[in-house]
Design a protein around this nucleic acid. Structure first.
Length: 293
DNA sequence: CCACTAACCTGTAGGC
DNA sequence: TGCCTACAGGTTAGTG
């Protein structure tokens, strides 16, 4: 479900409430999500204060006062929400809302300003996962990630270095988190359309013999940055069920140029093409056969 | 190292 | 309404 803009939207929604909050107790309603939760998960979180809510690629990173980092990946359907409960009863022994279907982790928080809160992680398909570590460098999940697309480390040159001699299609290579960290199925289609590059194009064909990036890669670097920034500004995209922590939905889906728009006219000015859908590595790609080469 | 497939799990939309 | 199939925003494990 969530790509970089959606995860960033979740992070921004959570941060004001979780940063500074003490984790009073942890309810694990099952021992695993996609993978088993760390054996020490509940005991490590309990009693700790959340210092900050950060993001790397599609990972949420909660920095804790005891030195641990709690990592959370939302998979396809993971979502955080705060439960409604009776704020009118000024007691710490509130009756929290009963757990709903697929509520897997519930954290009872106490914040110096916001008071008691119940933060819930819900994930129908359970493709999400959580982990704990002391140093980012020790995390297998973070170790091989490519540059953050909104940082200076990402550029046409950084892509060229990783595309060199690769025969895989652009679509597959941009989904590879070791190349750029945070793109997913939606934003790859959108960025390739803006850069006028076909998703089937062989990645290595965009690198010159001397290793420098083709002009199309320069366009792509700009397109990736632009589309992600615009999506973040719109609060992400809501296709089926994406919700930010306030229960609100994003609205970038109204700005899609090609994603899920098979059969519609290409929005590129002066282009009279029609959006096509193809399947690559088992997933849909959308593009305009007229203005993408 | 690279390219590709299958698998994980549940819900929903569409065809008949 | 019921049944069946296809598909869904992601990542990993396993195969050549």
């Amino acid at each position: 479900m969530p790509e970089l803009p959606e995860v960033e939207t979740v992070r921004r929604g959570l941060e004001p409430y979780v940063a500074g909050a003490r984790i009073v107790s942890v309810e694990l309603r099952r021992p695993d999500l996609r993978f088993p939760l760390p054996a020490t998960f509940a005991e490590t979180l309990t009693g700790a204060t959340v210092i900050a809510a950060e993001r790397r690629a599609k990972y949420l990173l909660f920095r804790l006062s005891n030195g641990a980092t709690w990592l959370s990946h939302l998979g396809m359907t993971g979502a955080y929400r705060f439960a409604d409960f009776d704020f009118k009863t000024p007691s710490r022994y509130y009756e929290p809302t009963a757990a709903e279907k697929h509520d897997h982790v519930r954290l009872h928080l106490d914040h110096p300003v916001h008071g008691e809160m119940l933060l819930i992680y819900n994930d129908a398909r359970r493709f999400g996962f959580m982990d704990l570590f002391e140093d980012d460098a020790a995390s297998a999940y973070l170790k091989d990630l490519g540059p953050e697309p909104l940082s200076n480390a990402f550029s046409a040159q950084s892509m060229a270095e990783r595309f060199s001699r690769r025969i895989a299609p652009m679509k597959a290579v941009l989904l590879d988190q070791r190349v750029v960290a945070g793109l997913g199925n939606i934003y790859v289609s959108e960025a390739l359309h803006r850069a006028h590059i076909r998703p089937e194009r062989e990645a290595g064909s965009l690198v010159r013999p001397d290793g420098s990036p083709d002009p199309a890669l320069e366009r792509l670097a700009v397109a990736v940055r632009d589309v992600l920034n615009e999506a973040i500004a719109a609060g992400g995209s809501t296709l089926r069920d994406f919700r930010n922590a306030d229960g609100g939905s994003g609205y970038f889906q109204h700005s899609f140029s090609v994603y899920d728009r098979e059969g519609e006219p290409c929005p590129t000015p002066g282009c009279d093409g029609t959006i096509s859908r193809i399947v690559q590595s088992g997933r849909s790609s959308f593009f305009c056969p007229r203005c993408q080469h």
